[in-house]
Structure formats: C-alpha cells, structure tokens
Amino acid sequence: MSLQEVTEQELLESLQDNSSAKAVYFYTGLCGTCQLGERMLEIALVAAPSIRVYKININYAPLLRDKWKISSVPALVLLEHGAPVQTEYAMRSVDHLYTLLTKHFSSPK
C-alpha cells in the first residue's frame, strides 16, 4: 500500500519520469469528505499493494491545480505519460476506487 504525501515540486519532478502510470489524490486539510475519501483509498490500496498514489494538498499545488483544471476536492487524478486521463471527484466506495486503480495500473501504457 502506498499513499505518499508530496510537495508540488516533488510531484512535478516525479512526472518527468512519465513512463509509468501514476495517480494523484488532491485534498484539503479541513475537508471531511476528503478525509473519508482518503480512508477509502487507503483501504483499496491495502488490496493492491503495488500501486502508488501520490497525495497533495490542493492549496499548496497551484500550478497543477490550474494546469489540470481541478475544480473541487477530493479529486483523484489518473495520469498516463505525465498527463491526466481521468479525474474522479466522487469517492463512491472502496470497491469503486479499487476497480478504478487496478484497471488504470494494469492497462498497457
């Protein structure tokens, strides 16, 4: 399981290696829905230990927020080759997140 907190600069550097699929979870500290979404994401990642998801506070990521047009939190952004391919705003269930992530990380890039 891996939900790794990063700064915007660290994430930008990580995106330069765009050979692998990535996912980024945007949140804010005082958002109760974000806390619930994060907990569901952590549970989904227990079942898929090889998947790494980056976590970033949207208030400290203005460049990516604007570039990727993140309109609210929580937001799970799926990336391919360093670019967003899907943004999920509704953290519906653990099962939904698990399915979303395993499909994304298992599909050929």
Rank of each mutant, 00 (worst) to 15 (best):
R39G: 01
R39K: 14
R39W: 08
M40N: 14
M40H: 13
M40V: 01
L41T: 05
A44I: 03
L45G: 01
V46A: 13
V46M: 13
A47Q: 13
A47D: 12
A47Y: 07
A47K: 10
A47M: 00
A48H: 12
A48F: 02
P49Y: 09
P49M: 14
P49E: 07
P49R: 12
P49C: 08
S50W: 09
I51G: 02
I51E: 04
V53W: 13
Y54N: 08
Y54L: 06
K55D: 05
K55W: 01
I56H: 04
I56E: 01
I56Q: 00
N57R: 14
N57H: 10
N57E: 06
I58K: 13
I58D: 05
I58G: 02
N59K: 13
Y60C: 14
Y60D: 11
Y60W: 13
Y60R: 13
A61M: 06
P62Q: 03
L63K: 15
L64G: 02
L64A: 08
L64F: 04
D66S: 08
K67V: 03
K67D: 02
K67S: 05
K67N: 12
W68G: 04
W68N: 08
K69A: 09
K69E: 06
K69I: 04
I70W: 07
I70K: 05
I70Y: 02
S71F: 10
S72E: 06
S72Y: 09
S72N: 11
V73R: 00
P74A: 04
P74L: 09
P74R: 07
P74M: 06
A75I: 01
A75K: 06
A75T: 08
A75P: 00
L76M: 13
V77F: 05
V77S: 05
L78S: 09
L78I: 04
L78G: 03
E80G: 11
E80T: 14
E80H: 11
E80A: 12
E80S: 08
H81N: 12
A83G: 01
V85S: 07
V85F: 02
Q86N: 13
Q86A: 14
Q86F: 03
E88I: 11
Y89Q: 03
Y89D: 08
Y89R: 12
A90K: 12
A90I: 14
M91K: 07
R92N: 07
R92I: 10
R92M: 10
V94T: 10
V94F: 05
V94W: 06
V94H: 02
V94I: 03
V94Y: 06
V94C: 12
H96R: 15
H96Y: 10
H96I: 13
L97P: 08
L97A: 09
Y98T: 10
Y98W: 12
L100D: 08
L100I: 09
L100Q: 06
L101Y: 09
T102M: 11
T102C: 05
K103N: 15
K103T: 15
